[in-house]
Amino acid sequence: MRGLAATFRNALAEVRSNRASFVSQISVMVLNDIVWVFFWVLFFRRVGSVRGWDGRNILLLLSVLTAAGGIALGVLANARRIGTMAVDGQLDAVLALPVPPLAHVLLRRVEATNVGDLVFGVVLFLSAGSPTPARAAVFVFAVAAASVLLTAFLVLAGSLAFFAGRNEAGELGFHAMIVLGAYPIDIFAGAAKVLLYTAVPAAFVSSVPARLIEDFDAGSAACLVAVAGVFAFAASASFTLGLRRYTSGSVWTR
């Protein structure tokens, strides 16, 4: 535990070692996210509401997605690099240490740009999410669950690279989650909708949490936690199994 805390402290120290660039990277991401707010405002101004979604709850969706994305891609920045690390043999340094490798890898790197997403998400919720103590509590819970799910999904998709020897699946999984999570689930129908509640659980990283904040219901909350738990377990298992097939880049250098 002490080791993991020290690792994370160093990751933070590293990302802040160049203060000016840290601040500018965060600001750029915040501006980037504001473009999305702008889009949704313009969109709903024009079309009214769409299948129960309007300018108000879409901003809740955006705040949960960016905050959870900020944690999974910014604070635990290596989550989306698992596949690359597996293929390029970058896990040697971790495996030579007496630490639980997945936890260490995840805490080892913070990415300033995506920390900007986290900052944005929180600020957006506070400014446009009509925060009350109860809603804020649900927001924190939902972001926590969504970020666990998102991180787990990225690790799971990346771990496929241990078995496939290539990382296309990881890359696509990452893009799919981010793109699909950015839109309300109800614009989809049929098989696509089922898919987004199961194999690519994008519904649970944005739409479901946003609805929970608006209108809390224990059943959906339990569902969210359960899905996050299942994916976390699958991610950890596939990473651990994958390590047995890890080739450390030795295929080329031996």
Binding site: F43, V50, E168, V179, L180, Y183, A192
Partner: peptide, 29 residues
Amino acid sequence: RGGMGVTLVFYVLVVVVLASLWRVAVGAN
């Protein structure tokens, strides 16, 4: 070809999502 494949899948994904959104909006209007 691998890179091209990723580009295309990503393209399809984005198009399907954005087009669905707009078609739903058009339908509602």
